[in-house]
Design a protein around this nucleic acid. Structure first.
Lengths: 238, 238
DNA sequence: ATAAAAACATGATTTATATCATTAAATTAT
DNA sequence: ATAATTTAATGATATAAATCATGTTTTTAT
């Protein structure tokens, strides 16, 4: 995925600019943007830093995290191809979260001034960007409900479903992302041991299997049924 | 606050339409919008219902709630003057939350088609609406971190600060909204008894006082310090 | 290929928080 | 104003989930 030459927005499969801006503006963004490769584990921006502009994920996987008293972390959101990181920033605006690449990822940066100009000149683009944030807000609402009201086991199942929703399944029904137990714990706001226990329980019931840290979803419908009915996996007859 | 005659967007203090649309479009929205009074406790829209358009809070206070297995509820967000409820909805889109008036509130409704037209014709309006959702997303991120990572006591203090941030304090330093202990619990995702206990603890330390269900913030800085330092109120010497 | 280091799994124990039970205080209605 | 009803406070108890401790895989590096 190493890129030697910046791709045009028009050729990026999921890019909102390429899909919703006029040809002239696509050219202007192509000239003004900055496309970079971030290696797995690299920070794209840091909590506390000034917001200079917007990041658009061309290709890759990213976690948005929030630091909790030094060591602990909460994963607040996930992003992949076509998603947006951060936001347009007023002067003095700082990031409240950090963005970290989960795998090698290609990401475009558009600075605040250029973004504002693009938005004013391309209302359909702005409309779509508005819809994007509204949709992320909806997902956040789901997570708030999940973290606030669900018992640990359901939080973990819900998190697995969320991973499938964002990253999808590959041809072998693997969750298409290299996510550790610790990271699942940081999404669900539980501890890692509970994730291990729950994964074991789901494996015993053959709803999932694992191959190393890879998680294979054998029975997606069953997982969905578990959250829909708030059922306890261990309550099921074995 | 009873309204006999619909106000023009241009005369609504905080309305994004009045502030960022052209005069012609303000007139069109005035003609096409529907301004209604919702009494305290009334539902503005229901979880599961089709999304026909956007609601703008002219004046009032609203909670956005999500139902948890029948009886329990999670407050996902709060809204007041100038805020936006719901979102532009594609056909078949349904609400994932309900919106309930916390006090008598005047709210405008703009349907999906009109909203789309307004957005395309008024890019600065769309830009501001986009910024609004991005800003709400940021607040949701804070809440996710709070619910996921903080002990009960800090969740409650953080919730009090959030109420102050959204609704402000009146001249007597009362939180300017009629919020019950149960509702604070539904924001912080804790139970009502814990809210009572924490409020008692904060009163003993004279950081807050109460007058019935009204909460008076005597020492806002101290509250902020508590969350900033993750300090336990009961650890303080009495 | 082998060693070293991470990451994961699992049982025992502790702890934070929810639930339950009761009393007291505010609201609301008569 | 008084009674009725709802909301809030507080103590006792139960329980879910975190922490701790240890062993086992899996991954990474040499």
């Amino acid at each position: 995925m190493v890129i030697n030459q910046q791709k045009s927005c028009a050729n990026c499969k999921h890019c909102l600019v390429g899909k919703f801006c006029s040809p002239e503006w696509i050219s202007k963004v192509d000239a003004g943007k900055n496309q970079l490769l971030y290696r797995k584990g690299q920070y794209i921006f840091y909590e506390g830093a000034l917001v200079f502009g917007l990041h658009l994920v061309t290709e890759g996987k990213v976690k948005i995290i929030s630091n909790v008293s030094g060591s602990k972390e909460q994963i607040v959101r996930l992003a992949t191809d076509g998603h947006v990181l951060g936001r347009w920033g007023d002067k003095e605006d700082i990031y409240e979260n950090s963005a970290v690449s989960l795998e090698d990822s290609v990401i475009c940066f558009i600075n605040n001034d250029l973004l504002h100009d693009v938005c004013l000149a391309n209302p359909e683009f702005t409309f779509q960007l508005m819809k994007y944030y509204a949709s992320e807000l909806r997902k956040s609402g789901k997570q708030i409900k999940c973290l606030g009201q669900m018992p640990v086991k359901l939080k973990i199942v819900e998190t697995l479903l969320h991973l499938v929703e964002i990253f999808g399944l590959d041809s072998k029904r693997n969750i298409a992302a290299a996510i550790s137990r610790q990271e699942i714990a940081e999404m669900a706001a539980v501890n890692m041991e509970q994730v291990s226990r729950e994964i074991t329980a789901l494996k015993k019931r053959r709803i999932i299997s694992t191959n190393g840290k890879q998680i294979i979803i054998n029975d997606l419908e069953k997982l969905q049924e578990i959250v829909a009915t708030q059922m306890d996996i261990l309550d099921l007859d074995s």
